[in-house]
Computed example of a mutant assay.
Amino acid sequence: MSTTADLVTALKKELKSAQMTYADLAAGLKMAESSVKRMFAKGDMPLSRIDAICRVLKLDFADLARRVADAQPLLRELTHEQERAVVADKKLLLVAISVLSQWTLEQITSTYRLSEAECVKYLAQLDRIGIIELRPLNRYRLKLAKTFRWRPHGPVMEFFREEVVLDYFRGGFDGEGEGLLLVHGSISRSLAPAFLERIQRVAQDFAQQHQTDQKLAEKDREGYTLLLGMRSWEFEALTALRR
């Protein structure tokens, strides 16, 4: 939810973009220029006034609010409480994983045994948790940074360690485009961060390729999970929810 101060800051940017002075705005609002300047200097005004300024700018309030939301800093990590809410319901976790992969509501409901109403309910929960901003027509915007990761010892990673890891490694990693490497060795402590950085770059490259390939037809894409090893894989508890 946007604060009034955020909306006022956005209005200042819109005034500058429209090359409109405080005097121009005052004339449009039928107010004294000094009153308009004082109003913006305080950075606080009622929503009715913000709405009036939007009309002068010929700007829809919903568009202003959306621009404010888009400008908010993205989350690199959730709180312990937010993660605990995600893993408390397996179906909510399924939808959370799906939105992290930028799946649409239609893709989720056609793949898993979730009704549209259920899926919308879970999207609304993810909106309240702070993972997405739910938009009209059940579209959404992820509020997570590209560097987002689950808390190393948080509820989500604990769930995956207890419920998912063995399921993942049970595979043979011998399918097309799959592989599992286990390499042990002793290296300089000073070099370890450099190798970690390489691993992080591979993960980022993989994530970026996922975004790029969303324009391809579904028949030309395959689901993979990258975890130092990579294979085409889906957690069996989620498979059980498929249609």
Rank of each mutant, 00 (worst) to 15 (best):
F40P: 00
A41W: 11
T21D: 13
A237H: 08
F235T: 00
R113T: 10
V156I: 15
L144K: 06
L93A: 05
A240K: 15
Y112C: 13
P46H: 03
A10K: 05
F206D: 02
I132V: 11
M39A: 00
I50R: 02
F159K: 14
F173Y: 11
W150F: 07
Q125V: 12
F40D: 00
E197K: 07
S188G: 12
G28E: 00
Q107D: 15
C54Q: 01
A27Y: 03
R243A: 08
M31C: 04
M157H: 07
Q19L: 14
A85T: 11
L180Y: 15
E222I: 02
R141K: 14
P155H: 13
T4P: 01
A237N: 08
F169Y: 12
V8H: 02
D70F: 09
T111C: 14
P152R: 11
A203I: 02
F195D: 12
A117K: 15
G154M: 03
E176S: 13
A192P: 10
R55F: 02
V68P: 01
L228K: 08
R67A: 11
K215E: 14
K146V: 04
E163D: 02
F61H: 00
I131L: 08
A203M: 12
L228C: 07
R139E: 05
Q125L: 14
W150A: 04
L92I: 12
K215Y: 06
L7H: 06
V99H: 09
V8G: 04
H153P: 00
L92D: 07
A52I: 00
A237P: 10
D213C: 11
E106N: 12
Q125D: 15
M157F: 11
V86I: 15
D44C: 01
P136L: 01
W103Y: 13
L216M: 10
R149N: 09
S110W: 00
R242P: 07
M157P: 03
A41D: 09
A240Y: 07
A117F: 12
T79W: 04
R76C: 05
K146G: 06
L191S: 15
H153M: 06
A62Q: 12
K30C: 10
K37S: 14
A192Q: 13
A18W: 01
W150K: 04
D51F: 05
I129H: 07
L93W: 05
K219I: 06
S188F: 06
T79L: 03
E163A: 03
L25I: 01
A85R: 08
D167Y: 01
P193Y: 03
G28R: 00
I108L: 01
S2P: 05
P155A: 15
L75A: 04
Y122S: 02
H80D: 12
L126H: 03
L92V: 09
L238R: 07
F235V: 01
R161P: 13
R38T: 08
